[in-house]
Design a binder for these strands. Structure first.
Length: 318
DNA sequence: AAGGGCCCCTGAAAGC
DNA sequence: TGCTTTCAGGGGCCCT
């Protein structure tokens, strides 16, 4: 389940292999994965384009393409401009018209491969899009659950699925790390919300990139219960949560993500953060801090894992 | 603003 | 044992 650390790892593993390469041919095996254009139009548009940059925004991967006819500008200018835009725009950030956005949702994989490389029957069967590169290698989009999508930002503006995705992309909240989310605005954001913490952390317009796994881990490390109302946190608790986000995400990125099920990076390698998970998926196991059995509760339709002793339940609402 | 319901889809697990 | 059914799982949209 790729969340921020996994998508970041994919970006880092793919960048050196993709940036500067030209897409020679696109093979769309399962049309529904391409949003914004027919497979034919998508192929025609993208073939011959050069991958100028690879970015991550929340859980989206952003392929920035240079097109041979028009558009363009030299790469250095573009990169500088994009970096400047990101700082200037803060959380907003728009997709550029020629970009390809990829959201992997639960089980999507983006994998760099040698030509025709065999990834096994299951992954082979679920390989939906193949980008053939000018050095002969391939970038494959694989998805065992069929939830992910490849969005062509230059596609049909009237396509409701595309415009919804672009709207979602543009309304992403700040990145939790790297100078995105500032303490003061986080503190103020919590204070202004009555929502329960768990759904709030999963709200991508509040903060971008957390998913179910890291939300649970952050709450545990901060010692706050997932049902707590955001506005009821003390300064100390809010600070603990802010720091926990930073630490958990940094550690997870260091270990190249969490492979609970299907996740692998751009080189098909699994991440190693799963063994460091302290509560997620550990219902009934003992809390590493106090030895109390970890409990599971469904909140907002999502399973939540927490230690009932380290994360005190709110007095009301439970 | 908050929250419930629903849908996307497959494979694993549970049920018979 | 083997087949069928159920459900988990993340995210986001719609509706209230």
């Amino acid at each position: 389940m790729p969340e921020l650390p996994e998508v970041e790892t994919i970006k880092r593993t793919l960048s050196p292999r993709l940036v500067g390469r030209t897409i020679e041919r696109v093979e769309v095996r399962t049309p529904k994965f391409i949003v914004g254009a027919s497979p034919e139009d998508f192929g025609r548009a993208v073939e011959g384009a050069r991958i100028a940059g690879l970015d991550r925004r929340g859980k989206f991967l952003v392929f920035n393409l240079d097109y041979p006819a028009g558009g363009g500008g030299d790469t250095t200018d573009r990169d500088a401009q994009r970096a400047a835009d990101r700082v200037a725009e803060g959380p907003a950030g728009r997709a550029r018209p020629g970009d390809i956005l990829v959201h992997l949702k639960m089980a999507g994989q983006l994998v760099w491969c040698r030509p025709g490389e065999d990834l096994g029957a299951t992954r082979g069967k679920h390989t939906h899009v193949v980008f053939h590169l000018d050095d002969g290698n391939e970038l494959r989009y694989i998805d065992l659950r069929h939830f992910g999508r490849v969005y062509f930002a230059r596609g049909d503006a009237g396509d409701p699925v595309l415009s919804r995705a672009l709207r979602t992309f543009e309304s992403l909240g700040p990145e939790p790390r790297e100078g995105g989310l500032q303490w003061e605005s986080f503190r103020a954001g919590l204070a202004s919300r009555n929502a329960r913490l768990k759904p709030l952390l999963l709200d991508q317009s509040f903060v971008a990139g957390l998913g179910n796994i890291y939300a649970d881990e952050c709450l545990f490390r901060a010692g706050v219960h997932p049902l707590r109302r955001a506005s009821t946190l003390s300064d100390k608790e809010a600070r603990a949560l802010y720091d926990a986000m930073w630490e958990v995400l940094a550690q997870a990125i260091d270990l190249r993500g969490t492979s609970v099920r299907d996740y692998v990076d751009g080189e098909s390698r699994r991440g190693e953060f799963a063994e460091r998970l302290q509560v997620y998926g550990r219902t009934g196991e003992l809390c590493p801090r106090c030895g109390t059995p970890i409990e599971r509760l469904v909140i907002g339709g999502r399973s939540s894992h927490f230690c009932p002793k380290c994360q005190k339940a709110p007095r009301t609402d439970v």
